[in-house]
Amino acid sequence: MEFKDYYQILGVPRDAGADAIKKAFRKLARKYHPDVSKEQDAEARMKEVNEAYAVLSDPEKRAAYDQLGRGYRPGEEFRPPPGWDSGFEFSGSGFATADAADFSDFFAELFGRMGGGGGRRGFGARGEDHHAKILLDLEAAYGGGTRTITLRSPRQDRSGRVVLAEHSLEVRIPKGVREGQVIRLAGQGAPGVGGAPPGDLYLEVHFEPHPRYRVEGGDVYATLPVTPWEAALGATVKTRVPDGSVEVRIPPGSSSGRKLRLRGRGLPGKPPGDLYLVLEIQLPPADTPRARELYETMARELAFDPRKHTGS
C-alpha cells in the first residue's frame, strides 16, 4: 500500500488551518463537480479530494494521519505499525455520511477498522449503497434482455494515485426503462459487516445516441424519408421501427415535417409511449436527361410558387 499525501491533494501546506482546508476543498469541489466539470478525470479527482477532505477536516483523523504520515512521500510504500491507533480516542462519528465506501485502500487501512469509526460500517452494519450512471441501447429499453454493464470505480494505482478500474456485471434490464430513471441491483453494493447484508447498486439510466431514433420520455421519434409523389398522392410504405417493422399510410398532400403517430409503439410501459414518424421529402436527383425532362415538365405545367406568401 502506498502513502497518499492528502495535503498535496488539496494543495494546502501541512500547517493549514481548518478554514484554509475548507476553502481549498470547496474550490476543488467546484472544479471537479461531476455535473459541470470539463476535466476528463473529474470523477476520480473528486473522489480523491473527498477522501483528503474527510481526513483533514476532522481534527481526530487529521492528528492520527499527521502522526502516522510523518516522513512519508506520496507513492512511497506505506505500512501502518501494528496497533497504531491505540493511542487515539476516536469519537466514531467520522464518516457516517460521507462516501467512505468509495475511498481508497490506503484510507480503509488507516480508518476503516477504527472502533466504531466507520459509522454505519461498524459491527453488524449493512453495506453501503453504490451509485453509477450507465448508457443503454434503445433496444434494451424496448425489449428488456441481458446486457453487460461495465462500471468504473476508483482504485489506487502503483504510484498511489486514484485511477478508475473497470468491472463488469451481467444485468437483466427491465423492459420499458426510460431515460433518467433508476434501476436497482439488490445486494450489488458494498459488502455488509458482521454478517449483515450488502448494500444495493443504483444505476441511473441514459440512452446511447441512436443514428435513427430520438427519445423523449416514452415517445420515440424517427425520420421517414418519402418521395415527392408519395407525399403528394398518398401511399402506403413499409418501414423499420424499433420493435419490428410497420406499414404506414402517408396521407395525400403531406408536407415535410408532418408527424405520423403510431399509438403505443414508443417505449413499453403503463401507458406505453407513442412512435412518431416525421416525414422528410427527398427529391430524386436531376442527373439524367429523362429526370431533367420530368422536372422541366413540372416546372412548365404546375403553377407552383413556394414563395408566394413570403413577399419575395
Binding site: 451509485h131 437483466r172 427491465p174 433508476v182 441491483l185 448494500g199 444495493d200 444505476l203
Partner: peptide, 24 residues
C-alpha cells in the same frame, strides 16, 4: 452465472429507510 435482475425503481419505489441509505 445467471444475470442480475435489475428492478425499476419507478415501479418498486423506495421506502424512507432505503431513501436514507441511498442518500447516506
Amino acid at each position: 452465472t445467471d444475470p442480475i435482475v435489475a428492478q425499476l425503481v419507478e415501479e418498486t419505489r423506495l421506502t424512507l429507510e432505503e431513501m436514507a441509505a441511498g442518500c447516506r
